[in-house]
C-alpha cells in the first residue's frame, strides 16, 4: 500500500511535519499500519446513536476539539459512536451512570432538550457562544431538569464528554502531527534522549525566525 497523501500542517510549532510520512519507515510495524489504516478509514455515519443524537455529538465534538475541515480532520463523533458499537470502554463504570451507550444517548437527548427549552433549537443549531455556555454549565453541573435524572451532567461531562472525545482525538495521526509527537515507534525506538536532543525521525520544532528551517527538516522526517 502506498503512503497516504501527506497533509502537513504548515503552521504551528511543527510546520511541515506529517507523522504519516513515517508509515513505511522502521518506526511502523505491520500491525501498527493495520490499526492506523483502519482508524483513518472509520465509517463516518452513526451505527449505534440515532441520527439526531449523532448530529448533536458532532457539534459537541467541534466545541471540545476545534478543528479545521480538510484532509486532516479527525471525525471524532464517528470514533465515539464506533466505541459504543464495539463495546469499548475503560473497564469500569461509576455506579451513578448507566452503561456507555445508554448514557451517551440520554445525555445527548438531554442536551438537545435543554437547548430546545432555552433557545427553541437543537444544540447543533445554536451559535458558538450558546453552545459553549451550555457545555460550561454541564461541566459545572448547573444543568437540571427531568431529562438529566439518569445522567448527572457534571459526572457525565468528566467521565464521557471529555474522556471519550479527547481520547479519540489524541489517538489520531493529525493530533500527533500537530503536537510534534513521534508517533508509532516499533521496532525503531529512539537514540538521542537528553535535553534538546532530536533524532532525525522526530519532528523539528520551529523556533522564532527559524520556521523555514524547521519546515525543511520536517519534510525530511521519515
Amino acid at each position: 500500500m502506498p503512503d497516504r497523501q501527506p497533509d502537513p500542517v504548515e503552521e504551528g510549532r511543527f510546520p511541515g511535519y506529517d507523522v504519516l510520512r513515517k508509515r513505511s519507515s522502521m518506526s511502523w510495524n505491520d500491525r501498527t499500519r493495520e490499526v492506523v489504516d483502519r482508524r483513518l478509514a472509520v465509517e463516518r455515519g452513526p451505527r449505534t446513536l440515532s441520527a439526531d443524537a449523532f448530529r448533536c455529538l458532532e457539534a459537541v465534538c467541534a466545541q471540545i476539539v476545534p478543528q479545521n475541515q480538510g484532509p486532516s480532520f479527525a471525525p471524532l463523533a464517528a470514533y465515539v459512536d464506533e466505541g459504543l458499537t464495539l463495546g469499548l470502554g475503560p473497564g469500569y463504570r461509576n455506579a451513578e451512570l448507566p452503561e456507555a451507550p445508554e448514557a451517551w444517548a440520554k445525555a445527548l437527548a438531554a442536551l438537545d432538550a435543554t437547548a430546545q427549552r432555552e433557545h427553541d433549537a437543537v444544540f447543533a443549531a445554536l451559535d458558538d457562544a450558546q453552545q459553549k455556555s451550555l457545555l460550561q454549565r454541564m461541566q459545572k453541573g448547573e444543568l437540571s431538569g427531568p431529562e438529566w435524572t439518569d445522567v448527572p451532567p457534571k459526572l457525565f461531562f468528566s467521565q464521557h464528554v471529555l474522556t471519550d472525545i479527547v481520547a479519540a482525538w489524541a489517538a489520531h495521526p493529525s493530533a500527533w502531527s500537530r503536537i510534534g509527537f513521534g508517533g508509532p515507534a516499533s521496532p525503531r525506538g529512539y537514540v538521542r534522549m537528553g535535553f534538546g536532543m532530536r533524532d532525525s525521525w522526530e519532528a523539528a520544532e520551529a523556533h522564532p525566525g527559524q520556521e523555514a528551517k524547521a519546515a525543511r527538516e520536517n519534510r525530511r522526517v521519515r
Binding site: 510495524n29 500491525r31 501498527t32 490499526v35 492506523v36 481520547a167 508509532p184 516499533s186
Partner: peptide
C-alpha cells in the same frame, strides 16, 4: 500482535 499505538 502489538501495535505501536495506545488505543489499539
Amino acid at each position: 500482535d502489538f501495535a505501536s499505538d495506545e488505543t489499539a
